[in-house]
Amino acid sequence: MAKVKTLDDLKKMRADLQSKITLRENSDRPEKMVQIKVSMATCGIASGAKETMNYLIEELDNRAIDAVVTQTGCMGYCHSEPTIEVHLPGNDPVVYGNVDVKKAGEVITKHIVGGELLDGIIPTNYTTPDEDNQK
């Protein structure tokens, strides 16, 4: 049976990882990087936000795009989970709803790389019926 990985193996990988990071120009300037927040509360998790997040991390790494993918709480769009917020440097953040793995791929190709907006954006002035009633 193959040897089980331990933290010692991680130490051996360290030099490689370090050199990969220094190659990236913006790694110490997060504001210059693409920032993606994945909504990961009960609603998001139940809808598959974990798969979306894993995919985003892997795919962005594969394509060597400088990006930080982090978790956030519920943004209140439980009806459209999984939701992600994409923040390109110098642009306003955009929230996409119903982002499965396929949609996440499109967001990377068309929005992050291509710079065009896709269907499925939740507008910032969106309010729930509840909030409307309070007005």
Binding site: L7, D9, L17, K20, I21
Partner: peptide, 17 residues
Amino acid sequence: DALDGVPITEPGVINFL
């Protein structure tokens, strides 16, 4: 400790863990 400064958010690290 083992990473010694390499961020734990690195995709390579996540994959390894």
